[in-house]
Amino acid sequence: MTPKQQYVAFETLIRKEVRRFTRIWVQTLIPPVITMALYFVVFGALIGSRIGEMGGFDYMSFVVPGLIMMSVINNSYSNVVSSFFSAKFSKSIEELQVSPTPSYIIMLGYVGGGALRGLIVGGIVTTVSLLFVDLHIQHIWVTILVVLLTSILFSIAGMINAIFAKSFDDISIIPTFVLTPMTYLGGVFYSISLLPEFWQGVSKLNPVLYMVNAFRYGMLGVSDVNIYVSLAGIMMFVVIAAGVCLYLLERGKKMRT
C-alpha cells in the first residue's frame, strides 16, 4: 500500500471507531460523566469540605485532576478492549486481516479511536468540574501532553487485553482487578505524602501515580513525584506497549490459527 492508501485505511478506522462510540453515546459518553459528577458532589463538595487542604489546595481542587485522568484512563481502555474484542468475537476483524492494511495502521486506528473517546470524555468531565471549582491551568502543554500520552497508553493496553481475550469475561477481568485498584491507589484521591514511607515506595511502583501527578502538575503546579521522571516514564511505557501490541498483531496472536 502506498502511504496515501495507508492514510485512507487509518482514516477509515478512526471514522468507524468514532461512529461506534457516538452511535451508542448513552453507553459510552454519558455514564462516565454522571459517575464523575457524583464523585465531585460526594468527595469534593460534601466530604471534601471536611477534609480541608491537600497538597496546598482545597480538597475539591486537588481531586479534580485525578478524576479527569481516571475518566480518560477508563474510557480509552474500555473503548479499545470492547471494540477490538467485539470485532474478534463477531469475526469482523477478518475484514481487516484479509486486506493489505498493515498491522501498525490497524493499531493506530483502534488506538486513535480509543484516545479520542478518552479525550472527549475527559473534556466533558473537565467542563462539568467547572461547576464545582475554578480551574487555573498552570502548565498547559504539560497538561495536554500528559492527557494525550495517557489516553494513547491505555488504548494500547486495552488492545493488548483484547488480543489475548477469549471471552467477554476476559475483557472485564483486567479493568476490575488491575486497572481499578491501580487508579484508586494511584494518588487520585490523596497525596502519597500522607502515607508511611514504605507505602510511599510501594505507590511509586504504580505507573498510574506518575500520570495522575504529572497531570496534576500541569493543572495545579504540584506533584508528589518528579515531573521529568513522570514524563519519561509515560513515554517509555507508550513505546514498550506499542512494541508489544504491534508484535502480537504481526504474529496474528489469537487471531490466525
Binding site: M1, T2, K4, Q5, Q6, V8, A9, E11, T12, L13, R15, K16, R19, E95, L96, S99, P100, T101
Partner: peptide, 15 residues
C-alpha cells in the same frame, strides 16, 4: 453501506 465503504477504505480506496 458502511460495511462496504469501510472495506474499501481498508484497501486504500478514496471515499
Amino acid at each position: 453501506e458502511d460495511i462496504i465503504i469501510n472495506q474499501a477504505g481498508y484497501y486504500g480506496l478514496p471515499r
